[in-house]
Design a protein around this nucleic acid. Structure first.
Lengths: 322, 322
DNA sequence: CTGAAAGCGCTAACAA
DNA sequence: TTGTTAGCGCTTTCAG
């Protein structure tokens, strides 16, 4: 009755509204949700982050804010779901219990349990959207950034600086993120007619420490001339690596060139400032939520399509030889 | 019935449970919440953060994770409330509509509207807990860190390095955080029989930019010898300031000493590495939620008491003269 | 100790 | 168009 169902006399409506205000009436959200069979919540599934944070907190808070913005706009609340370590990924149950009406999954990985959990969501026809992870065969709604192009740009830039032996520090391959970057790396090399050399590819875990630990090996290669530039799959690894390399007397922008990825806060804090690839995390969060909640202009076929947002190379100091 | 109310035969219980599993029954959370008149949600009120983020995202994600941990332990879900800019701070309504059972307020400020909103919560006897902000007269449940001691330590350390004219870059005074730091600054000075000089106190807004913008003025003072050290109320301002000072040819650890606050990621990324004060954000989040949810060992008088967690000075390079 | 039944406060379908 | 009423799926109370 207090909802505007069906047109009713202006006067009546107003009187009711006034009366309600006078008595201090507020609708009970619990009862509403129950009667409507809708929680009004959009769930955000967060990856388990132990001491070593998989995602820079920059990434995390930007995406969350983006989701928050659309959620608010659409009258939804945001329910945070912290995934546990051992990872009982029973996403579907969140829907069965009606805790959430839709959800966006952050930091999902390409591992069997995750595939199963997502397939179950799909099978149950529960609305969900992935951010920053794609599964090639499966057509899930996804919002991602164009990391293939981003990596190509990064490597092309390095090539333009005259670098010829570009090492690539990637993250774990269960993230499509990582495979995308590898693809971009290869493509850029191919275009420049440079042979892809597996020996030049290293893999860390996106943490600063993992970058740091690679320094010793890389230092040798740089000094021997077998590496003249490094492309790191994220800023944290790039920064750790630069720190380690410095301990060997090697400076980015001098003995080697470096490009990172993410354009996180750290990249402009350090010196020399890190050349990196900016990713529109906030926009990605906004878009992911909109795909779920914004039923105003959802052409059906858009539902399972990828949204690939553009990234941008930000040239600073580490990739420019003095 | 499916809840374990009253002892019942083991056998019966088991049979029921099995039957339930067989049919694939899952309790409807909405109905439960409605019947119990409890949403099972703990709200987290987040400050509005425009482009210039008031809180380092480090702060943000740490506290949130802490809250998440206890929430999960106590079987609660976490509902995120993004405060709007103009700030309709109708916290009490979240309780009236039953969206949340309790809430923790982050980044609350000492301004009239906020005081009113909190007073209303208190009046309605709704359980809430502040993090990182105290109101002197009002006895609200609060979890904070001991910033008075932290600042004293920081300044004392600077004094021990032989510094005598210590500038202080503070944040806005509507945060008890800021006034605490000022108090610590003054106290440390007093103990060393150094006169408190208002001229040495600057105020930024906790952003890197605001630190950077202070550089020009500080550079003059450092060069003239009227300032030999700087204590900044957070790392971001310290880092911005160091960047600005560098442009004037001034290096921390050489021409001046610098101490920051927070021990954020940035502090160990930059070089020279920043001496700073570590704050247990994660623990604070955990504790705040526990105060609200953990009714196992809540002595009544504890409900409105402050919890002041210890902080720790982390000495790195910027405060040590070479 | 177990089973039946009365709500919880709203929405939605339906009758007037 | 408006008012009425039957649920929504659980909890809880109260007889049995």
């Amino acid at each position: 009755m207090l909802n505007n169902v069906g047109p009713l006399k202006e006067e009546t409506r107003e009187r009711v509204l006034q009366a309600a205000a006078a008595v201090g009436y507020v609708p009970n959200a619990l009862a509403q949700q129950f009667a409507r069979r809708k929680s009004g919540n959009i769930g955000v599934i967060l990856p388990f982050m132990p001491k070593v944070r998989l995602f820079s907190t920059y990434y995390f808070s930007e995406i969350l804010s983006g989701i928050g913005e659309t959620a608010k706009r659409c009258g939804y609340d945001l329910l945070l779901i912290f995934r546990e370590q051992d990872g009982a990924r029973d996403y579907a149950n969140l829907f069965r219990t009606q805790k959430i009406d839709a959800c966006v999954v952050l930091g999902s990985q390409d591992v069997p349990e995750e595939r199963a959990a997502l397939a179950e969501l799909k099978a149950g026809d529960y609305p969900f959207c992935l951010v920053n992870q794609r599964y090639d065969e499966a057509a899930y709604a996804t919002v991602d950034a164009d990391h293939v192009s981003g990596s190509m740009e990064a490597v092309r830039h390095l090539l333009e600086q005259g670098c010829r032996s570009i090492a690539f520090i990637n993250g774990p391959l269960q993230y499509s993120n990582s495979t995308d970057r590898l693809e971009g790396y290869k493509k850029a090399l191919g275009k420049a007619d440079i042979r892809y050399d597996q020996e030049l590819v290293y893999v860390g875990n996106y943490s600063r420490k993992s970058g740091y630990e690679l320094a010793e090996r890389l230092a040798l290669h740089i000094k021997s001339g077998s590496v003249d530039a490094i492309f790191a799959a994220n800023d944290r690894m790039a920064i750790g690596l630069m720190q380690g390399l410095r301990e060997s007397g090697l400076e980015a922008g001098k003995q080697y060139a470096m490009v990172g990825y993410d354009d996180s806060d750290g990249s402009s804090i350090i010196s020399p400032q890190l050349t990196t690839v900016a990713v529109p995390f906030y926009e990605m969060g906004k878009l992911a939520a909109a795909r779920l909640l914004d039923h105003t202009h959802t052409s059906e076929d858009e539902d399972t399509a990828d949204s690939l947002l553009p990234v941008q190379l930000v040239i600073r100091e580490t990739s420019i030889y003095e």
